[in-house]
Amino acid sequence: MTPGDAPTLSDRLTAAAAWPVRVLFQILDKPFRLIQRIGGIKTMPYIFLLPNLAFFGLFVVIPLFINFAFSLTGGTNLYLTDRVYTGTEQYAFLFDCGNYADPTSCREDRFWRGIYNTATFIFFQVTFLVLFSLITALILNRKIRARGFFRAVFFFPVLLSPVVVALIWKWILLRDGILNAALVSMGFDKILFFVSPEWSMFWAIFVSIWANMGFYTLILLAGLQAIPPDLYEAAEMDGTSTERVFRRITLPLLWPNMLVVIVLALIKGVQIFDEVYVLTGGGPGTATQFIVQYIYNTGFTNQVQNFGLASAASVVLGVVLFVLTMMQLAATRRRDNG
């Protein structure tokens, strides 16, 4: 922006948002000067890092260790010092299964139900999420009219809160909702979606794809736009067919981005909770109860708050996420280093 330009609306919004920050900075100026005078410039980086690291320590690092400690203890007390050391008992309880393929044979069948539900969910959700994101990105990358508008259309649900998304769809899917009205008008019977386990799972998957697709589309679109255009020009000169161009140029060059998107979707999928919890409440029965809801229920809503068991399940979830994140780092490195 040159000095002569009139400030745009977003400039003004930024300025308005920056105002309280500026006041805060003024207040903090004095103590920092004092510290610099006493400790010299060498201490300053540590001082600047201190607040953030204190927060990390208090709310991430210490909890990570406590979590592990919790998982080795039993009882219902929240404070660690009041808890009984039980060794690996919680883990043994979680993994006590006659047959791992059959949740009903497990002592803690809700945990395994949660794992199987989550596995089913991410298998379909990630597959179709990536598929539709790819199709949408390809289409938005074409020469279409009002591209900015269409991109915004597919993107905006990303910003909606999971609770809002769930309520929007719940209202559509209710017994007397508009979808059932459409079914009736076409001569079908009403379907009680939230009474059927299969339909509940279907809508859980559908709604989470609806809400998150725009995010992945955006990453893939950026990837598509980074493909050097001269490759396409060369292909055009050779008279290569569109299908072949897609298979030989677009897909291989987009693949690193695809990998990143797939792993990101997996990481988010494993942690699915918000949308589905509001939409189905985990039901009917335990049909859409996922692993995070198992942890939430076990630790916080059940009559007996079993913090030890919830922590043990969190550790299991953490291990899965750790593996996935390693995959993500590898995928990102591969993409960024070409």
């Binding site: 909890p63 990570l64 929240l78 916080f300 969190s314 953490g318 996420l321």
Partner: peptide, 16 residues
């Protein structure tokens, strides 16, 4: 710490 989502440490953060 980027890799540690809140879902993994619900109970201990609640304790803190």
């Amino acid at each position: 710490t980027l890799m540690i989502p809140i879902t993994v440490i619900l109970v201990p953060v609640y304790l803190v």
